[in-house]
Design a protein around this nucleic acid. Structure first.
Lengths: 192, 192
DNA sequence: TTTCTTTCTTGACATAGATCAATGGCCACG
DNA sequence: CGTGGCCATTGATCTATGTCAAGAAAGAAA
């Protein structure tokens, strides 16, 4: 499973065998069965996880007890809560596996070491964070004004591979519509 | 206007006259007339701004040309785009003044100096960032499922002072409803 | 003050999407 | 293999909110 990590990095910056070996040692593999939790609300995170196989979902439960999926995390995605790590504040969301999933876990200290030793890593890492923040702004805007159909098509465009593998009712939760509505949107869509 | 900044900091960590003087020198005051822009989409940010008087708004314009207010920033709020600063990526939003507004501007280098010299600053700063990130997640969830009334009441609870000072049509834009709907929600509300 | 413009309110109507309910498909598991 | 339980689909309503239009109120300008 380290190969996935390596390929991912090599797309972003050059990496010698030796350097990768350095990174490899700092990442601990773990496997989650479908349905297993990785993070529960209220826990304090001391690490981050990189997905090498399978798919996770991040969600919160609102005041009415309703679940809202904030993010899907298939291979090569990264989950953590930087602030929970740095300041020990409990995190506000759940993460569980929607398929059997392999991850690589590394803590803050490890990350710091990698940043110090591998040129390009820090930049690539923060580029990822930045992209994610901008996506969040876009998502807020879309959820405020886009129709169910627009949100669905936009999701297809942005994450075509995710759309195919997650169960429909979860996609509905992500989009903020009922499963029935999503079903109808898709029906209309195939007619064209 | 530096007094606002000082009071703000002193709520978060102890600060001697000397220390504050150090900070003061690194913050450059600026005044914006109502309607004036602080940041335009596509610009590269090299600084952050702290509001000492007045109110700013941050918004984006979507593919259909519609405006979406992402955030209001009254006194003691902070605006920047960390990633734009660090990596020179253009930012994706606009910021303008909805009242005559005084701000204090400091660039990355200044911030770094302050972090290095003032114990407690770095922590307070990042705590702010973290709170903001969690708010964003909550906002996504709310915009996906809450009714106009719930979103409005929630805004009142969370930002009571902002609700009173921003024009209603802007609040409507923030909440993702039409001005008409907001007007009706408020009418129903006052009846109770 | 008077006038002009922008914002807010109110009503009538249209519609997207929620809700409720029933059906059929599809796995997983005995 | 059945069979029980989840999931997707479809139809029939219901409702919140958008849209369009007109008038009132409130600021800004002069």
């Amino acid at each position: 499973m380290y190969e996935v990590l390596r390929t991912f990095y090599e797309k972003r910056f050059p990496l010698s065998d030796e350097q990768f070996e350095f990174i490899r040692k700092l990442n601990i593999p773990k496997t989650l069965k479908k349905g297993e939790f990785l993070i529960r609300e209220g826990e304090v995170l001391k690490w981050g996880a990189f997905v090498t196989r399978g798919c996770l979902r991040k969600y919160i439960i609102d005041a009415k007890g309703k679940e809202h999926i904030l993010q899907f995390l298939p291979e090569t995605w990264w989950i953590s809560d930087i602030d929970s790590q740095r300041y020990g504040t409990p995190c506000s969301f759940f993460v569980d596996a929607i398929e059997d999933t392999d991850i690589l876990i590394s803590d803050m200290a490890a990350n710091q070491q990698i940043m110090d030793h591998i040129p390009g890593f820090a930049e690539a890492f923060t580029k990822g964070l930045q992209k994610h923040a901008a996506e969040k702004d876009k998502r807020i805007a879309a959820s405020l004004s886009a129709s169910a159909e627009e949100k669905y098509l936009d999701f297809l465009r942005t994450y075509p591979s995710i759309a195919q593998r997650v169960p429909q009712h979860m996609l509905a939760s992500y989009l903020g519509v009922t499963p029935e509505t999503l079903s109808r949107v898709r029906k209309r869509q195939t007619k064209r």
